[in-house]
């Protein structure tokens, strides 16, 4: 079982069980936003890494079509405010959960609230490699080496993909082991490495668009 089980919410008005913690589809009412409202409960999906993109999209559309401020123009100021806030949260939830890297990062923050481990962990010699790559990138940018840049981008993107595809098995394992610390550390290592790679990719992308 998942460490963070999907929370259950009921409507403040009619008491019905909620699909999304932001809105009651039974009595069509906006719900107030509590500390308990996380991105998964906002979208009404269970808090695990394995998210079906189609389901995510469907849920988002379904809930957004009820929450959006466009439908509350003539409502009370309080409802208007609530609709803006709920829509903001829903947008953030959707943007975070549709991206595997952000989703993993967010899920880690939920799972690791009370776990202590080395959060700066990286694969061996990784930092040296990143430093060398940054230096090479500097050189390519200076020499306007477009082919070099293109190649580096491809290499980095492939590594990024590799790291990302390792996330799902790790998260699955996390749910089945007794002592999750080692798996968490491995996950954290992948996420940390992804951030360094992302930084390099961003530099290349900025160059491409200017």
């Amino acid at each position: 079982m998942s460490e963070v089980s999907s929370k259950s919410f009921s409507c403040e008005g009619c008491g019905a069980k909620l699909v999304s913690c932001l809105f009651c589809f039974d009595c069509s009412s906006l719900q107030s936003i509590s500390e308990e409202s996380d991105y998964f409960s906002a979208l009404g999906i269970s808090s695990e890494f394995d998210v079906d993109p189609d389901l995510l999209e469907e849920k988002f559309q379904h809930i957004a079509s009820e929450l959006h401020p466009d439908f509350y123009l003539n409502s009370t100021p309080q409802e208007k405010r609530l609709s803006e806030r709920a829509s903001t949260l829903l947008n953030q939830a959707y943007d975070t959960l549709k991206d595997p890297f952000k989703r993993a990062d967010y899920l880690m923050s939920l799972k690791c609230k009370n776990v202590k481990w080395n959060d700066r962990v990286l694969p061996p010699t990784f930092l040296q490699e990143m430093f060398t790559l940054q230096e090479e990138l500097d050189e390519m940018l200076e020499n306007q080496d477009q082919q070099g840049l293109l190649k580096m981008r491809e290499v980095l993107e492939n590594r990024f993909q590799d790291l990302e595809s390792g996330l799902l098995p790790s998260f699955r394992m996390l749910d089945s082991v007794e002592e999750p610390e080692t798996v968490l550390e491995k996950l954290q290592m992948n996420l940390n490495a992804e951030r360094y790679l992302r930084r390099l990719l961003d530099r290349i992308k900025i160059e491409e668009t200017t």
Binding site: L122, L127, F131, N192, L197, R198, R199, L200
Partner: peptide, 9 residues
């Protein structure tokens, strides 16, 4: 050293 928060080296 590196900062995994932002990828600084």
């Amino acid at each position: 050293v590196g900062a995994p928060e932002c990828g600084d080296v």
